[in-house]
Amino acid sequence: MFLFKKIPSISTNEIERKLAEKVTIIDVREPHEFVNGHIPGAKNVPLNKVRNYQPKGKIYVICQSGMRSKRATKELIQNGFDAVNIKGGMLRYSGATRGGKY
């Protein structure tokens, strides 16, 4: 029998409230997606580069819909980092953005 650990996740509403705390957010979409609109202060670390990323402290991970960020969060946790997936991704995020429009 396989045991699956649940990936820690929060909603886009919850991350909006946390933005005042100066949290660390990485956006794992491709650069051309990132420039079309992202959460202010988010750092672009495409999914294929997450394995080399060395965050300090708790990190929140977002993508377009939540699938890539879930994979990235799982990989970060397996590498010993404190990571949280943002469910629903930018498609559900309704807060302020930089770059393009959502």
Rank of each mutant, 00 (worst) to 15 (best):
N13D: 09
P31M: 08
P8S: 02
I62R: 01
P31Y: 06
Q78F: 05
L47G: 08
F81T: 07
K74P: 09
K56E: 11
N48S: 14
K87T: 12
I15Y: 09
G57M: 04
S69E: 02
H38I: 00
R51W: 10
K74S: 14
K43A: 10
F81A: 06
Q54I: 08
N79K: 15
K43T: 09
G80E: 06
M67E: 13
H38G: 02
I15D: 00
V45C: 14
K58F: 04
R92H: 11
I62M: 08
E30N: 12
R92W: 05
N13M: 09
E75P: 04
V61H: 01
D82L: 05
E16R: 07
I59G: 02
P55K: 09
F34Q: 04
F34Y: 13
E75C: 03
L76H: 10
F34I: 04
I62S: 01
N52W: 05
K22C: 03
G89E: 12
P40L: 07
K87D: 14
C63G: 11
A42F: 06
K18L: 15
P55A: 08
E21A: 15
I15P: 01
K56C: 00
R29Y: 10
A72E: 00
N52A: 13
L47K: 12
V23F: 05
K18I: 08
F81P: 12
S94F: 13
E16Y: 04
Y53P: 10
G66S: 11
N36V: 07
R92I: 04
R29Q: 04
M67G: 15
A42M: 00
M67L: 11
V45Q: 04
S11Q: 01
N79T: 01
I26F: 07
L91S: 11
N36D: 14
I26W: 00
Q78R: 14
E21C: 02
L91Y: 14
R17D: 15
N48H: 15
K22A: 02
K22S: 09
N79Q: 15
K56R: 03
E14H: 00
A72F: 07
N13F: 05
A42H: 08
R17T: 12
L91P: 03
C63R: 03
A72Y: 05
K49V: 13
N79R: 15
D82N: 11
I77Q: 10
F34K: 02
S11I: 09
Q54P: 01
I39G: 04
T12A: 12
K56D: 10
Q64Y: 12
N44H: 10
A20I: 08
E30R: 07
